[in-house]
């Protein structure tokens, strides 16, 4: 049985929920009171993840932390078609890894500014915002040229990858960090395409593309 240690408002936990939705995997959810309870820093949770971070996935006793790691694992273990993960050619695999790294940068900038604005964490929010804005511009340019070449997703190929899943939450939640996507039209269109992938789920602050 899959068990997700989850916090509803976390963009990183949302990555795993998206993946579980796309793969249609039944799972249990353990709600961790990140705010205001700081349960992720409790002794009980530190025993599960010494880093005190969400999300954590438990697959029948195989315990894994870090959203990118969990996405990679789920794609290897539970996606028989190998559509989402590192099942393709080398060039595609390289790009997926590249954008997974970019997703971590998004968490460290937009995610950090959002932690400051919405969860009152002591972070230099303006520096985080400036960093986030720079990343959004790079992502928008990449996606604009992808569109131009008839490509819908971050990595090459007709099917979205875990890179799209990893980069979606904190770009879709940019508004929470006071970053406007109006200047990133290609990102907004990519969001629309991503929201129409069967199995897509929403979270607070992320709206569906269809009724």
């Amino acid at each position: 049985m899959l068990t997700l240690y989850d916090y509803e408002l976390s963009g990183s936990c949302y990555k795993v929920r998206l993946m579980l939705g796309f793969l249609g995997l039944p799972h249990e959810t353990r709600h961790v009171d990140f705010h205001p309870g700081r349960e992720h820093k409790s002794d009980a949770f530190l025993a599960i993840n010494p880093l005190g971070q969400l999300p954590v996935l438990d697959d029948d006793g195989y315990v894994l932390r870090d959203a990118n790691a969990i996405l990679t694992y789920l794609a290897s273990a539970h996606d028989p078609g190998g559509r989402w993960g590192f099942g393709g050619d080398a060039a595609r695999n390289g790009r997926i890894a590249e954008w997974l790294g970019f997703a971590s940068d998004l968490t460290g900038t937009i995610g950090a500014a959002r932690l400051h604005d919405a969860f009152f964490h002591d972070i230099d929010a303006d520096a985080a915002r400036a960093g986030g804005k720079r990343l959004l511009r790079i992502l928008d340019e990449h996606l604009w040229f992808q569109e131009r070449q008839g490509a819908a997703w971050l990595a090459p190929g007709d099917h979205p990858s875990i890179a799209d899943i990893a980069c979606f939450p904190y770009t879709a939640l940019a508004q929470d960090a006071d970053l406007d996507l109006a200047d990133c039209p290609a990102i907004r269109r990519w969001h629309d395409r991503f929201k129409r992938v069967p199995g897509f789920t929403v979270m607070p602050g992320v709206f569906p593309a269809r009724e």
Binding site: A182, P185, R188, R189
Partner: peptide, 20 residues
């Protein structure tokens, strides 16, 4: 906007002098 910006079933965000 560019014509290619307005793809099917999408709502594009534009602005003129602060008016969205």
């Amino acid at each position: 906007a560019s014509s290619t910006d307005l793809v099917a079933r999408h709502v594009f965000a534009g602005a003129i002098w602060g008016q969205e």
